[in-house]
């Protein structure tokens, strides 16, 4: 039997082909991160008192802060660099609706591998988003192109950690979408708090008391902070390498929880027969 990784890559390739079949959606997925940042930058500009014809140094610094946080994790509207776990969930949801999920689960491979394969597709898309945003950053904020190699290592490991964390969460979100017919509730209580409490476009210390406490145990916040530090030299939470360690620890926990939850849900579905009910 082929290794699970090879099978997962094969599933990812299939997902790519299927997504290309939805041509307009695919184009939007590929470009959404660029469209998504536009209103945020425009609001930043206005709040800083600048206009498109007149951008000063303070505005540029504010915009860089927001841009780096967005590139690392922020999801807004439909431009979603955190689409790995939402993508895995919606991917599963779509397979449930088209009826192909059962057919996949009939193959003699781990069912986690099938879900992980969908995650790989979205992880690649996410990596593409981060990369293209950073290329854009080099033009909009030339200082980001002049960072030391050590900083690049921090940014790279932080981004990879966020990918791993998202994939781990993706297993749980896919499980929830299998279990709950309308899994948006899970996205509401997991996805959106993660999005909000990541401090991607604001300072975490401005959050009201209890929310700030929750944000400080959210590993995403540390990944975003490390990424931002790498390109701007400004971090607000911990030592960047410690932050990278926190992200990876979070990723490990998310992966373990995800594997267990997905396994239990698939087993439950096998008992209730709900796999084919949409």
């Amino acid at each position: 039997m082929s290794s699970n990784l090879a099978i997962a890559m094969h599933v990812a390739k299939k997902e790519l082909r299927v997504q290309i079949g939805y041509r307009n959606k695919f184009i939007a997925d590929v470009l959404s991160h660029v469209i998504g940042i536009v209103p945020i930058l425009l609001i930043t500009l206005a709040l800083s008192g600048s206009s498109l014809n007149d951008i000063d140094g303070i505005t540029r610094a504010n915009a860089l802060f927001v841009f780096l946080g967005y590139a690392a994790f922020m999801a807004f509207g439909f431009g979603t660099p955190i689409m790995i776990y939402t993508g895995m969930a919606w991917g599963i949801s779509e397979e449930l609706q088209t009826g192909t999920i059962e057919r996949n689960f009939l193959a003699p491979v781990s069912r986690h591998t099938i879900v992980a394969g969908i995650g790989i597709y979205y992880a690649c898309l996410y990596a593409f988003h981060v990369t293209t945003l950073m290329i854009l950053a080099f033009f909009l904020f030339p200082s980001t192109a002049e960072i030391p190699v050590g900083n690049l290592a921090v940014a790279g490991t932080a981004a990879l950690g966020l990918i791993a964390l998202s994939a781990g969460l993706g297993l749980s979100s896919a499980a929830m979408f299998l279990m709950i017919r309308d899994g948006s509730l899970f996205l509401l209580f997991v996805h959106r708090p993660f999005m909000i409490l990541s401090g991607a476009i604001f300072l975490i210390e401005l959050l009201p008391g209890p929310l700030k406490l929750i944000a400080l145990v959210n590993p995403v916040a540390y990944g975003v902070d490390a990424f931002r530090w790498a390109f701007s030299g400004h971090g607000t939470l911990e030592d960047p390498w410690l932050e990278v360690g926190i992200v990876w620890a979070g990723a490990l926990v998310a992966a373990i929880v995800g594997v267990i939850v997905l396994g239990r849900v698939i087993r439950r579905q096998s008992r209730t027969g709900e796999l084919s009910r949409i």
Partner: peptide, 26 residues
């Protein structure tokens, strides 16, 4: 196994791509 017949294949892929995909899973 063929359950739910035509709903168990990917309509957005070609017949060959479907066969290749499922073959690879086995």
């Amino acid at each position: 196994v063929s359950i739910r017949g035509e709903r168990s294949v990917y309509w957005r892929l070609s017949g060959r791509q479907n066969l290749a995909y499922f073959g690879r899973l086995y």
